[in-house]
């Protein structure tokens, strides 16, 4: 379940942000704060976004900013920033984004269970809407533990 991977300390609900870069940065800082990755990983996430662009918006309203695996990653980890005001990430079909799941992985395969648990939740639109509307971390943790 996603609740195995997403800790309260890595969730920021209803963030009042104005740019896609800020949203990526905040999702990255949550990974750093939980000691999943070094600060330099946040820079790498922003570089991946500026170089490869909008593909991190994997479905309508959902972005998964990340960077390539490497020594700046300590453990696999996941963070969630929900946006008070949906933001454009430059995706022709999936904008605007309201859920930003930052993640990091030390290698290419080890985090597969985490990613699949995330996908299993996001495939259900009713959960996406509820997470989007949740006002507190506790509410979000409740939804992902169901």
């Amino acid at each position: 379940m996603l609740s195995d991977w997403l800790q309260a300390s890595a969730i920021l609900p209803q963030a009042d942000l104005t740019t896609s870069e800020a949203a990526i940065q905040v999702s990255g800082h949550l990974l750093v704060r939980n000691d999943y990755a070094d600060k330099s990983y946040v820079t790498a996430m922003l570089e991946n976004y500026s170089k490869n662009g909008n593909y991190i918006v994997i479905a309508p309203g959902i972005a998964i900013p990340h960077a390539a695996p490497g020594s700046m990653v300590h453990h696999q980890g996941l963070s969630l920033v929900t946006l008070k005001h949906p933001l454009n990430f430059g995706h022709p079909l999936n904008d605007p984004v309201c859920l930003v799941f930052g993640f990091c992985a030390p290698d290419h395969e080890g985090h597969l269970d985490m990613l699949m648990d995330l996908a299993a939740l996001l495939e259900q639109p009713q959960y996406v809407t509820r997470i989007q509307n949740a006002a507190t971390k506790e509410e979000i943790l409740q939804i992902i533990s169901e």
Binding site: N48, K51, N52, Y55, I56, I58, I64, H66, A67, A68, P69, F103, A105, H108, E109, H111, L112, L115, M116, A119
Partner: peptide
């Protein structure tokens, strides 16, 4: 295929 070979490409690999 994705940008870092770790996110969307891994999801798509499993689904496909």
């Amino acid at each position: 295929v994705c940008g870092a070979g770790v996110g969307s490409s891994m999801m798509l690999k499993v689904f496909a």
